[in-house]
């Protein structure tokens, strides 16, 4: 409900189980001036979403323990519409896209992605580019 970007640095939660991909995302987000936290699996992602209170989650679809789609639905249910969710996936089918958006994701990005586009999209979602 309240604008998460007002006054504070936006926080971003990265949920992915590939260490190198996490590393690149971490680098990109930090460089853009966000506070970053990492979760390695679905359960951890849900737990950190409550403790860390991110404004945006970069969520991999193929997570261990609990898959990204499920996490997405849970986050949407727990945190309301204020939380922005970006799904990342190595599966690029139209059905996956539809399913992801129907689970309440704001954006669906297919791997491998353009880093510039990703950063731009994140900023746009957070309304940070105008701030």
């Amino acid at each position: 409900m309240s604008d998460p970007t007002k006054g504070v640095t936006p926080r971003i939660l990265i949920a992915d189980d590939e260490p190198t991909i996490v590393l690149s995302l971490e680098f990109l987000m930090r460089r853009s001036g966000f506070v970053v936290e990492v979760a390695r699996d679905g359960d951890e992602a849900i737990a950190k979403a409550t403790t860390f209170e991110p404004s945006l989650v970069l969520l991999d679809v193929m997570l261990p323990r609990r898959d990204g789609m499920e996490v997405c639905r849970a986050l949407r249910a727990n945190c309301g519409a204020g939380l922005k969710i970006v799904l990342l996936t190595a599966k690029g089918g139209q059905t996956d896209l539809d399913r992801g958006l129907s689970m309440g994701a704001d954006l669906y990005i297919v791997k491998p992605f353009s880093t510039q586009d990703l950063v731009a999209s994140v900023k746009q979602l957070l309304g940070a580019d105008s701030a």
């Binding site: 590939e18 190198t20 991909i21 690149s24 995302l25 990109l28 190595a90 491998p112 880093t115 510039q116």
Partner: peptide, 13 residues
């Protein structure tokens, strides 16, 4: 795609 993602991301970085 998984290794490709890392390769592309770091190449661009």
């Amino acid at each position: 795609r998984t290794p490709l993602t890392s390769i592309r991301a770091f190449s661009e970085i």
